[in-house]
Amino acid sequence: MKAALRSILAKSTIWLPYIWLLIFFLAPFLIVAKLSVSEPAIAQPPYTPTFDFWDGPAGWWRAIGQFSFYNYIFITEDSLYWKSYISSLQIAVISTFLTLLIGYPMAYGMARAPRTWRPMLLMLVILPFWTSFLIRVYAWIGILKKEGLLNQFLLWIGLISEPLTILNTNTAVYIGIVYSYLPFMVLPLYANLERQDFSLLEAAMDLGCTQRQAFWKVTWPLSMPGVIAGCFLVFIPTVGEFVIPSLLGGSETLMIGRTLYDEFFQNRDWPVSSAVAIILLMILIVPIMLFQRSEALARERER
């Protein structure tokens, strides 16, 4: 009896994550996939066909017969969509790079700081999460706007004579994204760098490396798993980012998250917005799979 229970419990650790995925990933995915092959309609809900459970299999089959891939064809025909995808990917790549550029020295400094300081420094990185993400993005409006803190400061120190227009441009979007996602870059990098053996660097320098050479030949290659993890953690959510471009971006900021929002709310075109979402998911699955593979490889290497 006890053994049976234990075996169920043991197995549950395997199938519980699958049930989780089934309920919170596969089911919503199927609903959206179904929507993406429907037609918009002025009705409640605003698309056809709709499934009625009581129709029975014959009714379901009839509904499936009405599915069409027109929405996908429409998306490929209209340049707006692929321009949005490309511009989202571009913004995501650039901001991931900028985040790495700022995050790496931060993580490095934290990992090399005296041991007693580290919990405090880690705390400081996590601290912004205590305030709502939305409020922190709103705060940037106050900083970046024409009469904002940044412009007033720059005017005061005499670096500029005219206030800069930063808010409602792509620059503001980059600032917002880099700021918001920096912890996601710093934390995995720190976790990696902190574990690195310092004596390896000493060995490299004993063998004639300069400090810079030692960094590029030892620390950097060893930190690759952290770099990859950080980059994916920043890149993937940034591609679909909606809040930052809509609050800080200007009219010319084209991102797929906004295009999707407009399709859904302004055009009431649930089917096309679902198709946009499915394609976005397809685009993101590639880097997610690459990420998982690199993780698996790293784990194997550690063994």
Binding site: I42, S79, L80, K83, S251, T253, L254, D262, N267, D269
Partner: peptide, 19 residues
């Protein structure tokens, strides 16, 4: 109507994004 709505929102997005 449905057809005009799509035209209007297409044009509107072009205006907004300067495409």
């Amino acid at each position: 109507g449905a057809r005009n709505q799509r035209l209007v929102s297409r044009e509107w997005t072009k205006i907004k994004t300067g495409q």
